[in-house]
């Protein structure tokens, strides 16, 4: 089967609706989490969920579109980071396909892998587009590393990795728990859910 044919097969109406719902989830979950004052945002939970339920391409598309739409409705800066969101979705989808979402402890490993993918794409954007500074709290970390004598690249890598690790691991764990909690009738309709659910 050719790539474009496979794409069409994978993108059933259910998958399209799933992606659209997941974009809204990405954009609203922050509002819920802020109430608990935790050091996490979970703003890619929808992206990771699509990765688990519908595979890497659908997951990547979810991330990309989330940030592009954020760009349209809040601030164009979000759109600049859309490749990062894409990488998160692809990474989650690949992790699921290779069985890294079968148990909760594997999901933690998957969270670390997603953090790594996130950094690989985020660092160049932060570095070349924003000069390493994005005007957020994470910049304190970058300046601390610079003050310790690290170069800009190293400082940004450390900042991106550490500021995302807890968030992405928590995201992976919650996404895993949600897929496990979904009724069979729903997971039956999702093209990739079997890689996560079948372990049960």
């Amino acid at each position: 089967m050719s790539f474009s044919q496979r794409l069409k097969e994978d993108f059933t109406t259910t998958t399209i609706v799933l992606i659209a719902i997941a974009i809204v989830i990405n954009m609203t979950v922050g509002q819920v989490v802020s109430m608990l004052k935790l050091p996490i945002f979970l703003d890619s939970i929808g992206t990771v969920l699509v990765g688990l339920l519908a595979g890497p391409i659908a997951g990547g598309l979810t991330g990309l579109l989330t940030n592009l739409i954020w760009g349209m409705i809040t601030s164009p800066v979000a759109a600049a980071f859309s490749p990062v969101a894409l990488a998160i979705g692809v990474a989650a989808g690949l992790c699921a396909r290779y069985g890294l979402f079968k148990t909760w402890w594997l999901a933690i490993i998957a969270g670390v892998i997603i953090t790594f993918f996130n950094a690989v794409v985020a660092v160049p954007i932060r570095l070349y587009m924003f000069g390493g500074i994005t005007g957020s709290g994470a910049d304190f970390m970058t300046s601390y590393m610079l003050a310790l004598g690290k170069d800009l690249f190293g400082s940004v890598v450390v900042t991106v990795f550490t500021s995302n690790l807890i968030d992405k691991v928590a995201t992976a764990l919650i996404a895993w728990a949600i897929v496990k909690a979904l009724p069979e009738r729903t997971t039956d309709r999702m093209p990739q859910a079997k890689y996560v659910v079948s372990a049960a």
């Binding site: 059933t12 109406t13 259910t14 399209i16 609706v17 799933l18 719902i21 809204v24 989830i25 609203t28 979950v29 819920v32 989490v33 109430m35 608990l36 004052k37 935790l38 979970l42 939970i45 969920l49 339920l53 928590a170 919650i174 728990a177 949600i178 909690a181 979904l182 009724p183 009738r185 729903t186 309709r189």
Partner: peptide, 29 residues
């Protein structure tokens, strides 16, 4: 404790939206 509160806050919202996908996709088709 606040971490353990995440579940009850997120699960109804997320699971409800994902289960609703079935009707939404039928309505589109």
């Amino acid at each position: 404790r606040r971490f353990t509160s995440l579940g009850p806050l997120l699960f109804p919202l997320l699971i409800g939206s994902i289960v609703g996908i079935e009707q939404r996709s039928i309505a589109l088709e």
